[in-house]
């Protein structure tokens, strides 16, 4: 793969984002809103309780700060709309006409957008940790951090591939709105964005370890909090396999589905 080429693609994508300052500034406040709302909820729920499913109010808050950060890193959700529209309107040719791999183009753009938000999002985490005086955000041990980072990174690549797959389905189904939104709803729940998965019954939790969504936000956040440490290695392997599978499927899918194109928009 020709890296400078994809880096340039990423750079222009980043600038395109910054053209919309209102969106940029408002986007930066999102983690605060999410964490604040979660804090309010849990404060009410913890009334008269020390722990819920092994979480104290402090670890619970830390969990939401971490997942708000991780959720922010995946920027491919919105890209699905852009790509699906390009496909539907017959504008996908602009990617095909260039000497780049369209999937690679997608991933490069995604990486750029992630890099673009990472600084702001990290700032939010530090600010939030300070606001809540939350010491739980400082993990004890380096290997936990490395495991968490590696798993979260693979999770990002997996989500990007999944979203790419969703976008290219537009060749077959034209309107993928419903599918994309349903997928979004379910993934957010399974990833633990709304609730730490530890609150779920044991049987369900056990089943979810086989699926990739467990590793997108929940496990990295837990590891950072010093929880579920015994799952770190097996988690890395599991999400690694899922990610390789998703990448292969993503590369195969656009080549196959493209043939469904009737050259719409002529």
């Amino acid at each position: 793969m020709n890296l400078p080429k994809y880096a340039a693609i990423g750079a222009i994508g980043m600038r395109a984002r910054m053209a919309y300052r209102f969106d940029v500034w408002l986007g930066a406040t999102m983690p605060f809103i999410r964490v604040l709302l979660a804090y309010m909820l849990w404060k009410a729920l913890f009334a008269g309780k020390e722990t819920i499913a092994g979480f104290t109010l402090e670890t619970m808050t830390a969990y939401y700060i971490l997942t708000a950060f991780l959720a922010r890193l995946d920027q491919t959700n919105g890209m699905v709309w852009e790509y699906a529209e390009d496909i539907r309107e017959g504008r996908f040719a602009k990617y095909l006409a260039k000497p780049v791999n369209p999937f690679g183009h997608f991933l490069a753009t995604a990486a750029a957008r992630t890099l673009y938000v990472i600084g702001i999002a990290l700032g939010s985490v530090i600010l939030l940790a300070f606001l809540f005086r939350n010491s739980r955000l400082l993990p004890a041990n380096l290997s936990d951090i490395l495991y968490a980072a590696a798993i979260a990174f693979l999770g990002l690549v997996f989500m990007a591939s999944l979203n790419w797959l969703t976008a290219v389905l537009a060749w077959k189904f034209k309107d993928i709105t419903g599918f994309h939104m349903i997928k979004g709803n379910i993934v957010e729940f399974l990833a633990g964005t709304f609730l730490p998965l530890a609150l779920l019954p044991d049987g369900v939790l056990h089943l979810m370890r086989w699926f990739p969504f467990y590793y997108i936000q929940y496990l990295p956040a837990s590891l950072m909090l010093g929880m579920n440490r015994e799952e770190a290695f097996s988690g890395l392997i599991t999400i690694g396999l899922w990610t390789i599978g998703a990448l292969l499927l993503g590369e195969w899918a656009w080549r196959i589905l493209r043939r469904q194109d009737e050259g719409a928009g002529a």
Partner: peptide
């Protein structure tokens, strides 16, 4: 504003 994705996100969150 041309791009208002973040507002939509805020609305969804709320």
């Amino acid at each position: 504003f041309t791009r208002t994705d973040a507002l939509g996100e805020l609305e969804g969150e709320l």
